[in-house]
Amino acid sequence: MLELDKENFAAEVLEAQGLVLVDFWSPKCEPCKALLPGLEELAGRYPAVKFAKLNILENRRLAIGQRVMGLPTILIYRDGEKVAELSQDFQIEDVEAKLKELSA
Protein backbone atom coordinates (compact mmCIF):
# COMPACT_ATOMS: atom_id res chain seq x y z
CA MET A 1 0.00 0.00 0.00
CA LEU A 2 1.15 3.47 -0.89
CA GLU A 3 2.39 5.54 2.07
CA LEU A 4 0.88 9.04 2.09
CA ASP A 5 2.17 12.26 3.64
CA LYS A 6 1.69 15.97 3.12
CA GLU A 7 4.12 15.97 0.18
CA ASN A 8 2.20 13.48 -1.95
CA PHE A 9 -1.38 13.59 -0.61
CA ALA A 10 -2.69 16.14 -3.11
CA ALA A 11 -1.13 14.46 -6.15
CA GLU A 12 -1.93 10.86 -5.16
CA VAL A 13 -5.44 11.45 -3.79
CA LEU A 14 -7.04 14.80 -4.49
CA GLU A 15 -5.76 15.15 -8.06
CA ALA A 16 -5.89 11.46 -8.92
CA GLN A 17 -8.33 9.89 -11.36
CA GLY A 18 -10.43 6.87 -10.39
CA LEU A 19 -10.93 5.28 -6.98
CA VAL A 20 -8.45 5.84 -4.15
CA LEU A 21 -8.88 4.18 -0.75
CA VAL A 22 -7.11 5.89 2.14
CA ASP A 23 -6.63 4.01 5.41
CA PHE A 24 -6.05 6.44 8.31
CA TRP A 25 -4.12 4.63 11.02
CA SER A 26 -1.65 5.00 13.85
CA PRO A 27 0.84 2.57 15.40
CA LYS A 28 -1.06 2.86 18.71
CA CYS A 29 -4.43 1.93 17.25
CA GLU A 30 -4.99 -1.81 17.74
CA PRO A 31 -8.21 -2.03 15.68
CA CYS A 32 -6.32 -0.33 12.81
CA LYS A 33 -3.61 -2.98 12.91
CA ALA A 34 -6.30 -5.66 12.88
CA LEU A 35 -7.64 -4.29 9.59
CA LEU A 36 -4.33 -4.08 7.78
CA PRO A 37 -3.91 -7.68 6.55
CA GLY A 38 -7.47 -7.64 5.22
CA LEU A 39 -6.83 -4.40 3.35
CA GLU A 40 -3.68 -5.76 1.79
CA GLU A 41 -5.63 -8.79 0.64
CA LEU A 42 -8.35 -6.55 -0.86
CA ALA A 43 -5.66 -4.50 -2.64
CA GLY A 44 -4.64 -7.68 -4.45
CA ARG A 45 -8.20 -8.36 -5.56
CA TYR A 46 -9.11 -4.80 -6.60
CA PRO A 47 -6.23 -3.76 -8.88
CA ALA A 48 -8.27 -0.90 -10.34
CA VAL A 49 -8.41 0.82 -6.94
CA LYS A 50 -5.40 2.66 -5.53
CA PHE A 51 -4.83 1.58 -1.90
CA ALA A 52 -3.02 4.04 0.34
CA LYS A 53 -2.43 4.58 4.05
CA LEU A 54 -1.78 7.63 6.15
CA ASN A 55 -0.11 7.50 9.56
CA ILE A 56 -1.92 10.19 11.55
CA LEU A 57 0.87 10.41 14.12
CA GLU A 58 3.04 12.07 11.50
CA ASN A 59 0.26 13.74 9.54
CA ARG A 60 -2.21 14.93 12.13
CA ARG A 61 -3.13 18.20 10.43
CA LEU A 62 -3.56 16.51 7.09
CA ALA A 63 -6.00 14.02 8.66
CA ILE A 64 -7.96 16.72 10.47
CA GLY A 65 -8.04 18.64 7.18
CA GLN A 66 -9.91 15.65 5.73
CA ARG A 67 -12.23 15.82 8.78
CA VAL A 68 -10.83 12.63 10.25
CA MET A 69 -10.53 12.72 14.04
CA GLY A 70 -11.00 9.12 14.98
CA LEU A 71 -9.46 5.77 14.14
CA PRO A 72 -9.78 3.53 12.35
CA THR A 73 -11.20 5.54 9.45
CA ILE A 74 -11.24 4.67 5.78
CA LEU A 75 -12.12 7.26 3.16
CA ILE A 76 -12.69 6.43 -0.47
CA TYR A 77 -12.23 9.14 -3.10
CA ARG A 78 -13.34 9.14 -6.72
CA ASP A 79 -11.56 11.62 -8.99
CA GLY A 80 -10.46 13.48 -5.87
CA GLU A 81 -13.95 13.69 -4.34
CA LYS A 82 -14.75 11.93 -1.08
CA VAL A 83 -17.43 9.35 -1.94
CA ALA A 84 -17.43 6.98 1.03
CA GLU A 85 -16.43 6.93 4.64
CA LEU A 86 -16.15 4.14 7.21
CA SER A 87 -15.32 5.00 10.78
CA GLN A 88 -14.59 3.05 13.97
CA ASP A 89 -17.14 0.24 14.15
CA PHE A 90 -16.65 -1.49 10.85
CA GLN A 91 -15.24 -4.77 9.60
CA ILE A 92 -13.22 -5.67 6.55
CA GLU A 93 -16.41 -7.06 4.94
CA ASP A 94 -17.92 -3.56 5.11
CA VAL A 95 -14.91 -2.17 3.24
CA GLU A 96 -15.29 -4.76 0.52
CA ALA A 97 -19.04 -4.10 0.24
CA LYS A 98 -18.32 -0.38 -0.30
CA LEU A 99 -15.65 -1.15 -2.89
CA LYS A 100 -18.00 -3.46 -4.77
CA GLU A 101 -20.73 -0.83 -4.75
CA LEU A 102 -18.37 1.89 -5.97
CA SER A 103 -16.64 -0.16 -8.65
CA ALA A 104 -19.96 -1.37 -10.09
Binding site: K28, C29, I56, G70, L71
Partner: peptide, 8 residues
Amino acid sequence: CATCDADF
Protein backbone atom coordinates in the same frame (compact mmCIF):
# COMPACT_ATOMS: atom_id res chain seq x y z
CA CYS B 1 -11.01 4.78 22.66
CA ALA B 2 -8.42 7.17 24.06
CA THR B 3 -5.34 5.24 22.91
CA CYS B 4 -6.72 5.06 19.40
CA ASP B 5 -7.51 8.74 19.04
CA ALA B 6 -5.54 10.76 21.59
CA ASP B 7 -2.95 11.82 19.01
CA PHE B 8 -5.50 13.89 17.15
